[in-house]
């Protein structure tokens, strides 16, 4: 019994900041610029949401969606074949170990350490200040993750299925698309959701590589709202809630997958 109370209590405690955000997004300024500790608004208002809607800020959500979808698509298209190759083929001179080691270093390296030359790469490609450029830059975070995660999933697909298909004369592409991909579907979906969350929340590259305000992603925009002088907490909370809803819904979907990622990291 104590265990249940403690669990729910801790859970509530960790949710108060979120609850505060929801409540503040509904409060008129006079209620949050105060010393009151009342969480719930006395006089709820949708004014902050209206301001965001009127100023076209919802379009920034679209930017985040475009970047997230692009990041997911590219990381799966490049990551799945790579993971398959590493799982199924003998590569010469322990290339797989070298490659995975490099992927690991990239996964662990701080993004800021690559940011300066990356800026120049993107400029050379003419992709500064474009979503495509940001999608590419995001691969530094997404692709190592996708490869590591998919590697575990591919290894879990028994090779005997493919051998059976091979005996039936199925070519490689057919085998991959008709046997491996369907069996991998849960793994692909889980990977996609994680990469999407990662991209949705990514801040540093969006800050550095996107210049035009209408192309900002949500975190980059929120950062401009957290300025030194103002306490526009209502608008900030409304924006924060809009930016958080998709990932909060996603976490319900992939809680199982989260545990899975952990076991991938283990092997």
């Amino acid at each position: 019994m104590i265990r249940i109370v403690a669990a729910f209590g801790l859970c509530a405690l960790s949710l108060i900041p979120l609850l505060w955000m929801v409540a503040t997004s509904l409060k008129p300024p006079a209620e949050y610029v105060s010393t009151s500790i009342a969480l719930w608004p006395q006089d709820p208002t949708l004014a902050h949401y209206r301001v965001l809607l009127d100023s076209g800020m919802w379009r920034l959500g679209l930017n985040s969606v475009v970047v997230a979808l692009g990041t997911v698509a590219l990381s799966l298209l490049a990551g799945l074949p790579a993971a398959y190759a590493l799982a199924r083929f003998e590569l010469p001179r322990r290339f797989d170990i070298v490659f995975l080691g490099f992927v690991l270093v990239i996964k662990l390296a701080p993004p800021i350490a690559l940011a300066i030359p990356l800026y120049q790469v993107l400029r050379a490609l003419g992709l500064l200040d474009t979503h495509l450029g940001l999608i590419l830059a995001n691969q530094i975070l997404a692709l190592p993750f996708a490869i590591w995660m998919l590697l575990g999933f591919v290894r879990d697909v028994p090779y005997s299925f493919e051998e059976a298909a091979m005996l039936d004369g199925a070519g490689f592409v057919k085998r991959l698309l008709q046997i491996v991909v369907p069996l991998l579907m849960p793994g692909l979906v889980a990977t996609a959701v994680f990469v999407a969350i990662m991209s949705w929340n990514e801040f540093l590259f969006a800050l550095l590589f996107i210049q035009t305000p209408s192309k900002f992603t949500l975190p980059a925009f929120i950062a401009t709202l957290i300025n030194e002088d103002e306490t526009l907490w209502g608008r900030l909370s409304a924006m924060g809630l809009i930016a958080s809803l998709p990932v909060l819904l996603a976490v319900g979907l992939v809680r199982r997958g989260l545990t899975r990622e952990v076991s991938v990291d283990q092997h």
Binding site: V66, G70, H131, L132, K215
Partner: peptide, 8 residues
């Protein structure tokens, strides 16, 4: 996505 990114 590429189309959208291109548009922007």
């Amino acid at each position: 996505v590429l189309m959208l990114a291109g548009l922007s």
